[in-house]
Design a protein around this nucleic acid. Structure first.
Lengths: 252, 252
DNA sequence: CCGTCTTTGTGCACGCGTTCACAAAGACAT
DNA sequence: ATGTCTTTGTGAACGCGTGCACAAAGACGG
Protein backbone atom coordinates (compact mmCIF):
# COMPACT_ATOMS: atom_id res chain seq x y z
CA UNK A 1 0.00 0.00 0.00
CA UNK A 2 1.18 3.36 -0.79
CA UNK A 3 0.32 4.64 2.63
CA UNK A 4 2.70 2.32 4.25
CA UNK A 5 3.72 4.60 7.00
CA UNK A 6 5.23 2.53 9.70
CA UNK A 7 6.53 3.01 13.12
CA UNK A 8 10.08 2.25 13.92
CA UNK A 9 10.25 -0.12 16.83
CA UNK A 10 13.56 1.47 17.50
CA UNK A 11 15.61 -1.61 17.54
CA UNK A 12 17.67 -0.92 20.55
CA UNK A 13 21.30 -1.18 19.71
CA UNK A 14 20.76 -1.31 16.00
CA UNK A 15 18.51 1.69 15.80
CA UNK A 16 20.31 4.03 13.49
CA UNK A 17 18.10 7.01 12.60
CA UNK A 18 17.02 7.14 9.01
CA UNK A 19 18.43 10.61 8.59
CA UNK A 20 21.81 9.33 9.73
CA UNK A 21 21.74 6.40 7.33
CA UNK A 22 21.07 8.82 4.50
CA UNK A 23 24.22 10.74 5.37
CA UNK A 24 26.56 7.81 5.80
CA UNK A 25 27.21 7.51 2.05
CA UNK A 26 28.12 11.17 2.08
CA UNK A 27 30.69 10.66 4.80
CA UNK A 28 31.95 7.56 3.06
CA UNK A 29 32.61 9.47 -0.11
CA UNK A 30 34.53 12.18 1.71
CA UNK A 31 36.51 9.60 3.63
CA UNK A 32 37.35 7.68 0.50
CA UNK A 33 38.76 10.85 -1.02
CA UNK A 34 40.90 11.39 2.08
CA UNK A 35 41.99 7.79 2.00
CA UNK A 36 43.18 8.16 -1.56
CA UNK A 37 45.28 11.09 -0.49
CA UNK A 38 46.69 8.93 2.28
CA UNK A 39 45.43 11.18 5.03
CA UNK A 40 45.71 9.11 8.21
CA UNK A 41 43.26 10.88 10.51
CA UNK A 42 40.62 13.55 10.27
CA UNK A 43 38.75 15.65 12.80
CA UNK A 44 35.00 15.93 12.89
CA UNK A 45 35.33 19.55 11.89
CA UNK A 46 37.34 18.82 8.78
CA UNK A 47 35.27 15.87 7.70
CA UNK A 48 32.07 17.76 8.27
CA UNK A 49 33.28 20.54 6.02
CA UNK A 50 34.17 18.05 3.31
CA UNK A 51 30.80 16.40 3.53
CA UNK A 52 28.93 19.67 3.73
CA UNK A 53 27.31 19.15 7.10
CA UNK A 54 27.47 20.46 10.65
CA UNK A 55 30.24 18.94 12.75
CA UNK A 56 28.00 18.29 15.73
CA UNK A 57 25.64 16.39 13.49
CA UNK A 58 28.47 14.34 12.14
CA UNK A 59 29.70 13.41 15.58
CA UNK A 60 26.23 12.43 16.67
CA UNK A 61 25.81 10.36 13.54
CA UNK A 62 29.03 8.51 14.25
CA UNK A 63 28.03 8.01 17.84
CA UNK A 64 25.20 5.78 16.65
CA UNK A 65 27.76 3.50 15.07
CA UNK A 66 29.96 3.37 18.13
CA UNK A 67 32.92 5.19 19.55
CA UNK A 68 35.32 5.09 16.69
CA UNK A 69 37.15 8.33 17.32
CA UNK A 70 40.02 9.32 19.54
CA UNK A 71 39.57 12.42 21.61
CA UNK A 72 42.12 15.07 20.94
CA UNK A 73 43.02 13.45 17.63
CA UNK A 74 40.03 12.67 15.48
CA UNK A 75 39.01 9.66 13.44
CA UNK A 76 41.22 7.10 11.75
CA UNK A 77 40.30 7.40 8.11
CA UNK A 78 40.86 3.80 7.05
CA UNK A 79 39.13 2.38 10.05
CA UNK A 80 36.12 4.63 9.60
CA UNK A 81 35.87 3.78 5.91
CA UNK A 82 35.69 0.16 6.87
CA UNK A 83 33.15 0.66 9.64
CA UNK A 84 30.79 2.71 7.53
CA UNK A 85 31.13 0.37 4.60
CA UNK A 86 30.28 -2.53 6.83
CA UNK A 87 27.35 -0.70 8.36
CA UNK A 88 25.94 0.13 4.97
CA UNK A 89 26.44 -3.42 3.82
CA UNK A 90 28.91 -2.50 1.13
CA UNK A 91 31.41 -5.14 2.09
CA UNK A 92 29.31 -7.63 0.27
CA UNK A 93 28.36 -7.95 -3.35
CA UNK A 94 24.95 -6.64 -4.39
CA UNK A 95 23.75 -7.87 -7.74
CA UNK A 96 21.37 -5.36 -9.29
CA UNK A 97 19.10 -5.50 -12.31
CA UNK A 98 18.07 -2.48 -14.32
CA UNK A 99 14.71 -2.71 -16.05
CA UNK A 100 13.98 -0.36 -18.89
CA UNK A 101 17.01 0.35 -21.04
CA UNK A 102 16.08 3.66 -22.58
CA UNK A 103 18.22 6.73 -22.31
CA UNK A 104 18.11 6.72 -18.56
CA UNK A 105 18.56 2.98 -18.15
CA UNK A 106 21.60 3.09 -20.40
CA UNK A 107 23.01 5.99 -18.43
CA UNK A 108 22.57 4.02 -15.23
CA UNK A 109 24.20 0.96 -16.74
CA UNK A 110 27.20 3.07 -17.63
CA UNK A 111 27.32 4.85 -14.31
CA UNK A 112 30.60 4.18 -12.61
CA UNK A 113 29.45 4.95 -9.11
CA UNK A 114 27.80 1.58 -8.77
CA UNK A 115 30.59 -0.85 -9.36
CA UNK A 116 32.94 1.07 -7.15
CA UNK A 117 30.69 0.50 -4.17
CA UNK A 118 29.86 -3.14 -4.31
CA UNK A 119 26.94 -2.89 -6.69
CA UNK A 120 27.21 -5.17 -9.67
CA UNK A 121 24.89 -4.80 -12.61
CA UNK A 122 23.83 -8.41 -13.00
CA UNK A 123 21.49 -7.84 -15.90
CA UNK A 124 19.78 -5.31 -18.12
CA UNK A 125 16.17 -5.99 -18.98
CA UNK A 126 13.94 -4.38 -21.57
CA UNK A 127 10.55 -5.10 -23.06
CA UNK A 128 11.59 -4.27 -26.59
CA UNK A 129 12.52 -7.45 -28.49
CA UNK A 130 14.71 -5.39 -30.78
CA UNK A 131 16.95 -4.57 -27.84
CA UNK A 132 17.50 -8.18 -26.89
CA UNK A 133 21.09 -9.23 -27.19
CA UNK A 134 22.28 -5.75 -27.93
CA UNK A 135 25.10 -4.88 -25.54
CA UNK A 136 24.81 -1.78 -23.40
CA UNK A 137 27.75 -0.89 -21.23
CA UNK A 138 29.19 -4.24 -22.22
CA UNK A 139 26.20 -6.17 -20.93
CA UNK A 140 23.73 -7.80 -23.30
CA UNK A 141 20.15 -6.66 -22.84
CA UNK A 142 17.71 -9.43 -22.03
CA UNK A 143 14.01 -9.59 -22.66
CA UNK A 144 11.39 -9.01 -19.99
CA UNK A 145 10.07 -12.53 -20.46
CA UNK A 146 13.08 -13.87 -18.62
CA UNK A 147 12.82 -11.43 -15.73
CA UNK A 148 11.88 -13.97 -13.09
CA UNK A 149 14.56 -16.40 -14.12
CA UNK A 150 17.22 -13.71 -14.14
CA UNK A 151 16.28 -12.55 -10.66
CA UNK A 152 16.39 -16.01 -9.23
CA UNK A 153 19.50 -17.21 -11.01
CA UNK A 154 21.48 -14.21 -9.84
CA UNK A 155 20.02 -13.90 -6.38
CA UNK A 156 19.06 -10.32 -7.06
CA UNK A 157 17.39 -8.45 -4.24
CA UNK A 158 17.71 -4.90 -5.56
CA UNK A 159 15.98 -3.74 -8.70
CA UNK A 160 16.13 -0.45 -10.55
CA UNK A 161 13.10 0.64 -12.54
CA UNK A 162 13.79 3.02 -15.41
CA UNK A 163 10.78 2.23 -17.55
CA UNK A 164 8.05 4.62 -18.69
CA UNK A 165 5.50 5.39 -16.00
CA UNK A 166 2.89 3.14 -17.53
CA UNK A 167 4.95 -0.01 -17.18
CA UNK A 168 6.45 0.68 -13.78
CA UNK A 169 3.84 -0.88 -11.52
CA UNK A 170 3.67 -4.05 -13.56
CA UNK A 171 7.44 -4.41 -13.61
CA UNK A 172 7.50 -3.68 -9.90
CA UNK A 173 4.99 -6.42 -9.18
CA UNK A 174 6.99 -8.94 -11.16
CA UNK A 175 10.23 -7.95 -9.49
CA UNK A 176 8.70 -8.30 -6.05
CA UNK A 177 7.07 -11.60 -6.91
CA UNK A 178 10.42 -12.88 -8.10
CA UNK A 179 12.07 -11.99 -4.81
CA UNK A 180 13.30 -8.43 -5.08
CA UNK A 181 12.88 -6.58 -1.79
CA UNK A 182 14.41 -3.19 -2.57
CA UNK A 183 13.49 -0.99 -5.49
CA UNK A 184 14.94 2.22 -6.82
CA UNK A 185 12.24 3.83 -8.92
CA UNK A 186 12.94 6.41 -11.61
CA UNK A 187 9.50 6.25 -13.16
CA UNK A 188 7.19 9.11 -12.22
CA UNK A 189 4.63 6.94 -10.47
CA UNK A 190 3.68 5.99 -6.97
CA UNK A 191 4.46 2.32 -6.61
CA UNK A 192 2.39 -0.02 -4.51
CA UNK A 193 4.42 -2.66 -2.77
CA UNK A 194 3.71 -5.18 -0.03
CA UNK A 195 5.11 -4.65 3.41
CA UNK A 196 8.74 -5.49 3.77
CA UNK A 197 9.70 -4.06 0.42
CA UNK A 198 11.61 -0.80 0.37
CA UNK A 199 11.07 1.71 -2.37
CA UNK A 200 13.08 4.83 -2.97
CA UNK A 201 12.17 7.12 -5.78
CA UNK A 202 14.09 9.61 -7.79
CA UNK A 203 11.97 11.98 -9.77
CA UNK A 204 13.87 14.42 -11.93
CA UNK A 205 10.95 16.65 -12.69
CA UNK A 206 9.99 16.93 -9.04
CA UNK A 207 13.43 18.20 -8.16
CA UNK A 208 13.17 20.84 -10.83
CA UNK A 209 9.74 21.89 -9.65
CA UNK A 210 11.04 22.40 -6.14
CA UNK A 211 13.82 24.55 -7.52
CA UNK A 212 11.29 26.51 -9.54
CA UNK A 213 9.29 27.22 -6.41
CA UNK A 214 12.26 28.73 -4.65
CA UNK A 215 13.34 30.51 -7.78
CA UNK A 216 9.94 32.11 -8.09
CA UNK A 217 10.00 33.17 -4.49
CA UNK A 218 13.42 34.72 -4.90
CA UNK A 219 12.21 36.70 -7.90
CA UNK A 220 9.12 37.80 -6.04
CA UNK A 221 10.94 38.98 -2.94
CA UNK A 222 13.42 40.82 -5.03
CA UNK A 223 10.81 42.62 -7.06
CA UNK A 224 8.76 43.48 -4.04
CA UNK A 225 10.00 45.79 -1.30
CA UNK A 226 8.94 43.49 1.44
CA UNK A 227 6.09 41.15 1.84
CA UNK A 228 3.12 42.82 3.32
CA UNK A 229 0.60 40.61 5.00
CA UNK A 230 -1.42 40.37 1.86
CA UNK A 231 -4.90 39.47 2.87
CA UNK A 232 -5.37 36.06 1.44
CA UNK A 233 -8.28 36.95 -0.70
CA UNK A 234 -7.98 33.94 -2.87
CA UNK A 235 -11.36 34.34 -4.34
CA UNK A 236 -10.04 34.57 -7.79
CA UNK A 237 -10.94 31.85 -10.13
CA UNK A 238 -8.69 30.28 -12.64
CA UNK A 239 -8.04 31.87 -15.95
CA UNK A 240 -5.91 34.91 -15.67
CA UNK A 241 -5.96 34.88 -11.93
CA UNK A 242 -4.70 38.26 -10.87
CA UNK A 243 -2.63 36.95 -8.07
CA UNK A 244 -4.44 36.43 -4.86
CA UNK A 245 -1.49 37.31 -2.75
CA UNK A 246 1.85 36.57 -4.17
CA UNK A 247 2.16 38.73 -7.19
CA UNK A 248 3.70 36.33 -9.55
CA UNK A 249 5.64 39.00 -11.21
CA UNK A 250 7.84 37.27 -13.58
CA UNK A 251 10.50 38.97 -15.49
CA UNK A 252 10.88 37.16 -18.72
CA UNK B 1 32.19 29.67 10.95
CA UNK B 2 31.21 26.16 10.32
CA UNK B 3 27.65 26.84 11.08
CA UNK B 4 25.94 26.95 7.79
CA UNK B 5 23.76 29.90 8.37
CA UNK B 6 21.51 29.57 5.42
CA UNK B 7 18.35 30.59 7.12
CA UNK B 8 17.52 34.14 6.50
CA UNK B 9 14.78 35.79 8.48
CA UNK B 10 12.66 35.28 5.45
CA UNK B 11 9.94 32.72 5.28
CA UNK B 12 7.71 35.01 7.22
CA UNK B 13 4.26 35.51 5.88
CA UNK B 14 4.24 33.18 2.95
CA UNK B 15 5.91 30.39 4.84
CA UNK B 16 5.06 27.13 3.18
CA UNK B 17 6.94 24.34 4.94
CA UNK B 18 9.69 22.79 2.89
CA UNK B 19 8.21 19.34 3.35
CA UNK B 20 4.96 20.58 1.88
CA UNK B 21 6.65 22.15 -1.11
CA UNK B 22 8.35 18.85 -1.81
CA UNK B 23 4.98 17.13 -1.96
CA UNK B 24 3.18 19.64 -4.15
CA UNK B 25 4.63 18.19 -7.36
CA UNK B 26 3.33 14.83 -6.22
CA UNK B 27 -0.18 16.15 -5.78
CA UNK B 28 0.07 17.98 -9.05
CA UNK B 29 0.90 14.81 -10.91
CA UNK B 30 -2.02 12.95 -9.38
CA UNK B 31 -4.35 15.85 -10.12
CA UNK B 32 -3.19 16.08 -13.70
CA UNK B 33 -4.01 12.43 -14.17
CA UNK B 34 -7.49 13.02 -12.76
CA UNK B 35 -7.90 16.06 -14.97
CA UNK B 36 -7.10 14.02 -18.05
CA UNK B 37 -9.83 11.62 -17.06
CA UNK B 38 -12.16 14.59 -16.73
CA UNK B 39 -12.82 13.96 -13.06
CA UNK B 40 -14.42 17.15 -11.77
CA UNK B 41 -13.80 16.90 -8.03
CA UNK B 42 -11.81 14.74 -5.68
CA UNK B 43 -11.83 14.21 -1.93
CA UNK B 44 -8.72 14.49 0.20
CA UNK B 45 -8.98 10.77 0.87
CA UNK B 46 -8.97 9.80 -2.79
CA UNK B 47 -6.27 12.22 -3.78
CA UNK B 48 -4.12 11.18 -0.87
CA UNK B 49 -4.34 7.57 -1.93
CA UNK B 50 -3.35 8.48 -5.47
CA UNK B 51 -0.39 10.48 -4.28
CA UNK B 52 0.66 7.91 -1.72
CA UNK B 53 0.33 10.05 1.36
CA UNK B 54 -1.83 10.42 4.44
CA UNK B 55 -5.06 12.31 3.89
CA UNK B 56 -4.63 14.49 6.97
CA UNK B 57 -1.21 15.48 5.74
CA UNK B 58 -2.60 16.37 2.37
CA UNK B 59 -5.31 18.55 3.86
CA UNK B 60 -2.81 20.31 6.04
CA UNK B 61 -0.54 20.84 3.05
CA UNK B 62 -3.37 22.42 1.10
CA UNK B 63 -4.32 24.56 4.05
CA UNK B 64 -1.00 26.35 3.67
CA UNK B 65 -2.03 27.38 0.19
CA UNK B 66 -5.46 28.58 1.22
CA UNK B 67 -8.94 27.20 1.55
CA UNK B 68 -9.47 25.74 -1.84
CA UNK B 69 -11.79 22.91 -0.91
CA UNK B 70 -15.51 22.65 -0.35
CA UNK B 71 -16.64 20.82 2.74
CA UNK B 72 -18.84 17.92 2.05
CA UNK B 73 -17.64 17.77 -1.54
CA UNK B 74 -13.90 17.89 -1.92
CA UNK B 75 -11.55 19.80 -4.19
CA UNK B 76 -12.19 21.06 -7.68
CA UNK B 77 -9.57 19.30 -9.75
CA UNK B 78 -8.99 21.96 -12.38
CA UNK B 79 -8.89 24.75 -9.90
CA UNK B 80 -6.44 22.94 -7.70
CA UNK B 81 -4.21 22.11 -10.64
CA UNK B 82 -4.05 25.77 -11.41
CA UNK B 83 -3.40 26.86 -7.85
CA UNK B 84 -0.61 24.39 -7.28
CA UNK B 85 0.95 25.16 -10.64
CA UNK B 86 0.92 28.82 -9.81
CA UNK B 87 2.34 28.23 -6.36
CA UNK B 88 5.17 26.17 -7.79
CA UNK B 89 5.82 28.76 -10.43
CA UNK B 90 4.98 26.44 -13.28
CA UNK B 91 2.72 28.89 -15.04
CA UNK B 92 5.76 30.56 -16.39
CA UNK B 93 8.47 29.37 -18.69
CA UNK B 94 11.73 28.21 -17.13
CA UNK B 95 14.63 27.98 -19.52
CA UNK B 96 17.11 25.38 -18.35
CA UNK B 97 20.60 24.48 -19.46
CA UNK B 98 22.12 21.05 -19.08
CA UNK B 99 25.87 20.92 -18.73
CA UNK B 100 27.67 17.66 -19.42
CA UNK B 101 26.12 15.71 -22.25
CA UNK B 102 27.27 12.21 -21.44
CA UNK B 103 24.90 9.31 -21.00
CA UNK B 104 23.07 10.99 -18.18
CA UNK B 105 22.97 14.42 -19.76
CA UNK B 106 21.53 12.94 -22.93
CA UNK B 107 18.94 11.06 -20.92
CA UNK B 108 17.93 14.27 -19.20
CA UNK B 109 17.73 16.12 -22.51
CA UNK B 110 15.36 13.46 -23.76
CA UNK B 111 13.31 13.31 -20.60
CA UNK B 112 9.75 14.26 -21.33
CA UNK B 113 8.84 15.24 -17.82
CA UNK B 114 10.51 18.60 -18.19
CA UNK B 115 8.78 20.16 -21.14
CA UNK B 116 5.38 19.10 -19.89
CA UNK B 117 5.82 21.23 -16.80
CA UNK B 118 7.09 24.51 -18.05
CA UNK B 119 10.73 23.62 -18.21
CA UNK B 120 12.34 24.28 -21.54
CA UNK B 121 15.77 22.96 -22.35
CA UNK B 122 17.32 26.13 -23.67
CA UNK B 123 20.72 24.66 -24.37
CA UNK B 124 22.99 21.66 -24.00
CA UNK B 125 26.58 22.36 -23.10
CA UNK B 126 29.61 20.08 -23.14
CA UNK B 127 33.34 20.51 -22.82
CA UNK B 128 34.15 18.07 -25.60
CA UNK B 129 34.74 19.96 -28.87
CA UNK B 130 33.81 16.82 -30.76
CA UNK B 131 30.28 17.09 -29.39
CA UNK B 132 29.80 20.65 -30.57
CA UNK B 133 27.05 20.99 -33.11
CA UNK B 134 25.97 17.41 -32.71
CA UNK B 135 22.25 17.31 -32.03
CA UNK B 136 21.00 15.54 -28.93
CA UNK B 137 17.26 15.33 -28.46
CA UNK B 138 16.97 17.69 -31.38
CA UNK B 139 19.12 20.35 -29.76
CA UNK B 140 22.64 21.07 -30.94
CA UNK B 141 25.28 20.73 -28.27
CA UNK B 142 27.29 23.87 -27.64
CA UNK B 143 30.77 24.23 -26.27
CA UNK B 144 31.54 25.23 -22.72
CA UNK B 145 33.37 28.31 -23.93
CA UNK B 146 30.03 29.92 -24.71
CA UNK B 147 28.45 29.05 -21.37
CA UNK B 148 28.23 32.59 -20.06
CA UNK B 149 26.80 33.96 -23.27
CA UNK B 150 24.20 31.19 -23.47
CA UNK B 151 23.05 31.82 -19.91
CA UNK B 152 22.68 35.52 -20.44
CA UNK B 153 21.11 35.39 -23.87
CA UNK B 154 18.45 32.99 -22.70
CA UNK B 155 17.85 34.44 -19.27
CA UNK B 156 18.57 31.07 -17.69
CA UNK B 157 18.27 30.87 -13.93
CA UNK B 158 18.24 27.09 -13.50
CA UNK B 159 21.17 24.91 -14.42
CA UNK B 160 21.56 21.15 -14.42
CA UNK B 161 25.01 19.70 -13.85
CA UNK B 162 25.61 16.25 -15.26
CA UNK B 163 29.35 16.39 -15.63
CA UNK B 164 31.95 14.13 -14.02
CA UNK B 165 32.62 14.96 -10.38
CA UNK B 166 35.90 16.62 -11.15
CA UNK B 167 34.38 19.29 -13.34
CA UNK B 168 31.28 19.99 -11.31
CA UNK B 169 32.54 22.72 -9.00
CA UNK B 170 34.13 24.64 -11.80
CA UNK B 171 31.02 24.44 -13.93
CA UNK B 172 28.96 25.44 -10.94
CA UNK B 173 31.07 28.51 -10.31
CA UNK B 174 30.73 29.61 -13.90
CA UNK B 175 26.99 29.05 -13.90
CA UNK B 176 26.57 31.07 -10.75
CA UNK B 177 28.81 33.84 -11.99
CA UNK B 178 26.74 34.02 -15.15
CA UNK B 179 23.55 34.46 -13.19
CA UNK B 180 22.18 31.01 -12.45
CA UNK B 181 20.61 30.87 -8.99
CA UNK B 182 19.27 27.31 -8.86
CA UNK B 183 21.26 24.20 -9.57
CA UNK B 184 20.31 20.57 -9.88
CA UNK B 185 23.47 18.57 -9.34
CA UNK B 186 23.92 15.00 -10.53
CA UNK B 187 27.65 14.91 -9.98
CA UNK B 188 28.75 13.09 -6.83
CA UNK B 189 30.30 16.11 -5.19
CA UNK B 190 29.40 18.64 -2.56
CA UNK B 191 29.07 21.95 -4.31
CA UNK B 192 30.08 25.23 -2.76
CA UNK B 193 27.80 28.08 -3.68
CA UNK B 194 27.33 31.61 -2.40
CA UNK B 195 24.31 32.50 -0.35
CA UNK B 196 21.14 32.90 -2.29
CA UNK B 197 21.84 30.04 -4.64
CA UNK B 198 19.84 26.85 -4.20
CA UNK B 199 21.36 23.49 -4.86
CA UNK B 200 19.55 20.19 -4.95
CA UNK B 201 21.49 17.05 -5.52
CA UNK B 202 20.57 13.69 -6.90
CA UNK B 203 23.06 10.96 -6.25
CA UNK B 204 22.27 7.62 -7.74
CA UNK B 205 24.84 5.67 -5.81
CA UNK B 206 23.71 7.15 -2.51
CA UNK B 207 20.18 5.96 -3.07
CA UNK B 208 21.43 2.47 -3.74
CA UNK B 209 23.59 2.53 -0.64
CA UNK B 210 20.62 3.44 1.49
CA UNK B 211 18.70 0.54 0.00
CA UNK B 212 21.64 -1.75 0.67
CA UNK B 213 21.61 -0.75 4.31
CA UNK B 214 17.99 -1.72 4.76
CA UNK B 215 18.46 -4.81 2.68
CA UNK B 216 21.31 -5.93 4.90
CA UNK B 217 19.26 -5.26 7.99
CA UNK B 218 16.41 -7.31 6.63
CA UNK B 219 18.72 -10.20 5.91
CA UNK B 220 20.27 -9.89 9.34
CA UNK B 221 17.01 -9.88 11.25
CA UNK B 222 15.83 -12.80 9.27
CA UNK B 223 18.92 -14.85 9.96
CA UNK B 224 19.13 -13.99 13.61
CA UNK B 225 16.80 -15.43 16.20
CA UNK B 226 14.15 -12.79 16.15
CA UNK B 227 14.41 -11.37 19.60
CA UNK B 228 11.13 -9.63 19.42
CA UNK B 229 8.32 -11.47 17.78
CA UNK B 230 6.71 -8.09 17.81
CA UNK B 231 4.05 -8.24 15.21
CA UNK B 232 5.38 -5.27 13.46
CA UNK B 233 9.00 -6.06 13.79
CA UNK B 234 8.26 -4.48 10.61
CA UNK B 235 10.77 -2.91 8.55
CA UNK B 236 9.84 0.17 6.75
CA UNK B 237 7.58 -0.23 3.85
CA UNK B 238 7.01 2.06 1.00
CA UNK B 239 9.43 4.47 2.38
CA UNK B 240 9.67 7.13 -0.17
CA UNK B 241 12.69 9.14 0.60
CA UNK B 242 11.86 12.62 1.56
CA UNK B 243 15.49 13.01 1.00
CA UNK B 244 17.28 16.02 2.11
CA UNK B 245 15.91 19.27 1.26
CA UNK B 246 18.17 22.08 1.19
CA UNK B 247 21.65 21.60 0.44
CA UNK B 248 24.49 22.40 2.40
CA UNK B 249 25.78 25.73 1.75
CA UNK B 250 29.21 25.61 3.04
CA UNK B 251 31.26 28.57 3.85
CA UNK B 252 34.39 28.94 1.90
C1' DC C 1 -36.22 26.24 6.27
C1' DC C 2 -34.37 22.57 8.86
C1' DG C 3 -32.07 18.27 9.81
C1' DT C 4 -28.67 15.07 8.34
C1' DC C 5 -24.58 13.65 6.34
C1' DT C 6 -20.14 14.31 4.22
C1' DT C 7 -15.69 16.31 4.10
C1' DT C 8 -12.74 20.03 5.06
C1' DG C 9 -9.65 22.68 8.01
C1' DT C 10 -7.02 22.72 12.20
C1' DG C 11 -5.78 22.60 17.34
C1' DC C 12 -3.02 19.61 19.76
C1' DA C 13 0.18 16.19 21.12
C1' DC C 14 3.98 13.42 20.05
C1' DG C 15 8.30 11.94 18.15
C1' DC C 16 12.28 12.67 15.24
C1' DG C 17 16.11 15.42 13.93
C1' DT C 18 19.15 19.31 14.73
C1' DT C 19 21.98 22.17 17.37
C1' DC C 20 24.20 23.89 21.43
C1' DA C 21 27.29 23.55 24.94
C1' DC C 22 30.16 21.12 27.97
C1' DA C 23 32.25 17.42 30.63
C1' DA C 24 35.13 13.50 29.84
C1' DA C 25 38.91 11.39 27.46
C1' DG C 26 43.06 11.05 25.74
C1' DA C 27 47.53 12.92 23.38
C1' DC C 28 51.54 15.36 24.13
C1' DA C 29 55.01 18.22 26.29
C1' DT C 30 57.54 19.11 30.25
C1' DA D 1 53.54 12.06 36.55
C1' DT D 2 51.24 15.98 35.93
C1' DG D 3 49.28 19.73 33.51
C1' DT D 4 47.61 21.62 29.33
C1' DC D 5 45.29 21.44 25.19
C1' DT D 6 42.55 19.39 21.64
C1' DT D 7 38.61 16.94 20.18
C1' DT D 8 35.17 13.57 20.97
C1' DG D 9 30.73 11.98 22.69
C1' DT D 10 26.35 13.26 24.52
C1' DG D 11 22.63 15.36 27.64
C1' DA D 12 19.27 18.65 26.94
C1' DA D 13 16.56 22.13 24.60
C1' DC D 14 14.25 23.36 20.61
C1' DG D 15 11.80 23.31 16.26
C1' DC D 16 9.69 20.94 12.51
C1' DG D 17 6.78 17.48 10.61
C1' DT D 18 3.22 14.05 11.28
C1' DG D 19 -1.08 12.14 12.54
C1' DC D 20 -5.24 12.12 15.44
C1' DA D 21 -9.54 13.60 16.32
C1' DC D 22 -13.13 16.83 16.10
C1' DA D 23 -15.73 21.01 15.36
C1' DA D 24 -17.22 23.95 11.65
C1' DA D 25 -18.92 24.39 7.02
C1' DG D 26 -21.56 23.47 3.50
C1' DA D 27 -24.29 20.24 0.27
C1' DC D 28 -28.45 17.88 -0.13
C1' DG D 29 -33.03 15.97 0.73
C1' DG D 30 -37.41 16.53 2.63
Amino acid sequence: MATGRTHRPATRSRGIPEATVARLPLYLRALTALSERSVPTVSSEELAAAAGVNSAKLRKDFSYLGSYGTRGVGYDVEYLVYQISRELGLTQDWPVVIVGIGNLGAALANYGGFASRGFRVAALIDADPAMAGKPVAGIPVQHTDDLEKIIEDNGVSIGVIATPAGAAQQVCDRLVAAGVTSILNFAPTVLSVPEGVDVRKVDLSIELQILAFHEQRKAGEEALPDGLPAAAAATESADQGPDGDVPAVMPA
